[in-house]
């Protein structure tokens, strides 16, 4: 089926105006004509569920539930789409905005939530085990501490990163 760009406009405009407004899509609409340069996106090559039929913007926005669209979080922020867009649009930046909304509505994948929780509570994306301690000791490297973790948690709290996760406070006190 050949879809003329006019139809594309109509379809996009048919999406809830709140979405168009929420993500400032007005700036995309006059330009983003499925030129498909942004099909350079690596995720389109590798991910079987992520096969845009039109442009990225179209596919995410026109889905039933843009914020809950699992494909959204597959964007690896490589920025290639931004490099190649002849109109200087950035699907990446748009995806970032939608990711933020997705996260704040509790619609992000559980691995994302765990990563955020790990960073805000321990200061690191990965847990430190005795294996780490042993490896570092053997190499003559200083042991890892969590001295900065308190500050990281404080900054995360005041800037809102912890709003959507449950943090168990230490029992002893």
């Amino acid at each position: 089926m050949i879809i003329a760009s006019g139809v594309f406009f109509v379809t996009i405009i048919k999406t809830p105006t709140s979405i168009v407004k929420q993500f400032n899509l007005e700036k995309f609409l006059p330009y983003c004509l499925k030129c498909s340069n942004c099909q350079i996106c690596p995720v389109t090559d590798f991910s079987e569920d992520y096969t845009p039929t039109e442009s990225f913007v179209y596919d995410i926005i026109s889905s039933e539930d843009p914020l809950g669209n699992v494909n959204l979080w597959k964007c690896v922020s490589c920025h290639y789409c931004q490099d190649v867009c002849p109109f200087g649009l950035s699907p990446h930046n748009l995806f970032m905005e939608i990711k933020a909304a997705s996260y704040s509505e509790g619609k992000s994948p559980s691995a994302v939530t765990s990563l955020i929780k790990s960073i805000v509570t321990t200061g690191r994306g990965f847990g430190v085990s005795t294996r780490t301690d042993k490896m570092r000791e053997k190499l003559g490297l200083s042991p890892l501490t969590s001295n900065g973790a308190k500050d990281v948690l404080k900054l995360s709290e005041i800037t809102g990163a912890t709003k959507h996760i449950i943090i168990e406070k230490e029992e002893e006190q």
Binding site: S77, M96, K99, A100, A111, L115, I116, G125, N147, T159
Partner: peptide
């Protein structure tokens, strides 16, 4: 010196850009 997570530029940033 001990830095903490950079933090991660894809999911962490996507979810919570300002933090």
């Amino acid at each position: 010196i001990e830095f903490m997570c950079c933090p991660e530029p894809i999911s962490f940033r996507g979810a919570t850009d300002y933090s």
